[in-house]
Amino acid sequence: MEQILRNILDNDFFVYGIMGIVPLVWIVPYALFAIWLERKISAHMQDRLGPMRTGGWHGWSQTIADMLKLLQKEDIIPAAADKTLFNIAPYIIFVSAYAAYAVIPFSSGFIGADINVGIFYIIAVTSLAVVGILMGGWASNNKWSLLGAMRATAQIVSYEIPSVLAVLAVVMIAGTLSLQEINNLQTGWFWNWFVFQKFPFVFVAFIIYFVASLAEVNRVPFDIPEAESELVAGYVTEYSGMKFAMFMFAEFVNMFAVSAVAATLFFGGWNSPFGEFLSGPIWGVFWFLSKGMMLVSVQMWLRWTLPRLRVDQLMYVSWKVLTPWAFACVIAVGFWMML
């Protein structure tokens, strides 16, 4: 896609500008859709209907209406808050979530930047969210926000380790950090996907990655930073209006980002599961997005089924369960490759 653009425009600035905006074309409708979907999924799981009125068919435009409402809301900044940090925080969180999309291959024909350390870049840039969360929690000048921010920071930093180790297992098989390369290696039928390679070690690595990614995006059962029954709303307690919407938006963007990485690393990314059948750059987008959305739906499913863990139990899961198992996977895959 970069090539096509270059042929038309012949100006680096515009080319990169457009390349940067393209993921938004997916993300904005996705976020609106995913919020609606989450409502619907939760409602149907809970024997309810969910939004039914707004927009006609099954309340499809409920999120749009909500977004318009949030846009019009008064932007309240607590008197005792640190104004600068309080204002910046939601954007930092969003930027860190969005920056990951730069290297996610949407199809064989489109990737923002096919850099050779793609997965490493994603791990690095998504950790930036911690800064934003800590900023928001501290600047709110609210004890609940601070507690939430501290929890979130501890949690994200801890869960980075098992998730990185799980990713490492795949990287060892692939021998590359570039996501596009990793996709190319999984071409063909679905048994070529890495999740089915070196069975069951990579499969275990996928489970570890998925669990850790749930914690990184603060989803149930690891949603303790914003546990509404304990910390009111954690670090977003004092936010309202559009800034609150930014947090919300960032959460959903992040949800898809981790799912997209999982889809790329373990489920062949934009590859069709059936060899040559329905493959190609355009169908690639379809396969990629559906794999991502599948994982997002699983996240939602878990969200409305499980209770949440306590802080110390959460740390226990990370350091004493996931990390050793991830190490074991890495070592096992390593030995297998040496054989």
């Binding site: 799981m45 029954s229 209770p307």
Partner: peptide, 10 residues
């Protein structure tokens, strides 16, 4: 309180 929303509605 524990974080499971669904049983509440059931």
């Amino acid at each position: 309180d524990i974080g499971a929303f669904t049983p509440f509605l059931y």
